[in-house]
Amino acid sequence: MLRVNNLHAEAEDTQILKGVDLEVNPGEIHAIMGPNGSGKSTLAQILAGHEAYTVTGGEATFEGRDLLDMAPEERARRGIFLAFQYPVEIPGVNTAYFLRTGLNEIRKDRGEDPMDAMDFLGLIREKLALVEMDESFLKRSVNEGFSGGEKKRHEILQLAVLEPRLAILDETDSGLDIDALKIVAKGVNSLHSPDKSTVVVTHYQRLLDYIVPDFVHVLMGGRIVKSGDKDLAHELEQRGYDWIARETATDSVADAVGV
């Protein structure tokens, strides 16, 4: 589904990704972990098409097509979804309109008829229940005045409405209390299916107790330096990241983490 090969990227002349390799197949859940500043969020944003980053080498394909060539909206329409670490507040755009417009753009691309307001209301009620959000959110401006937890649940609500093939969750667990974390995880798990894939970007192992990954990757110094199964996440939780830096001990990684 997603193949990333030797991806290099920079922002404002600073090299952030220095050769990332990643392969995600249908039905798989991958976790990308790593210390702060290792490039996790950059990778997530690049996969969604953020223009602040320049890809300087390597390639990425999604279902066989060149991903890096696509505009962000094209990626969304083909089934890539990024749950933002910091969801953007958009004053004056009501949440129902925002959700329905996005859904209808994607439906249009799939050759389906747009959903009218009534049908959409039926759909959204079901999805709201999934993330335990109140219908009153629909009338509010997108993310404006939402608490941290509400913003993250709203991201999962969008995921539920848009039903992407590949969901990338960028630090969706940050700032969540344990109850909100469980709600988010329940939403993600219930949307998962054998033909869909999920990439969970996180700093902590905690979320992975609820969204259990098939693969765990450690991103350090702009490269994936170690991969394993879910036990790797537990090991990282106990031992931190330094031992991996010593184990891999390449110059670039050592530089990046300052050991």
């Binding site: 505009a71 962000p72 417009t101």
Partner: peptide
């Protein structure tokens, strides 16, 4: 905000 909307399918 423009990027956010585009990641939701809006041109």
């Amino acid at each position: 905000a423009i990027f956010y909307l585009r990641t939701r399918g809006l041109s």
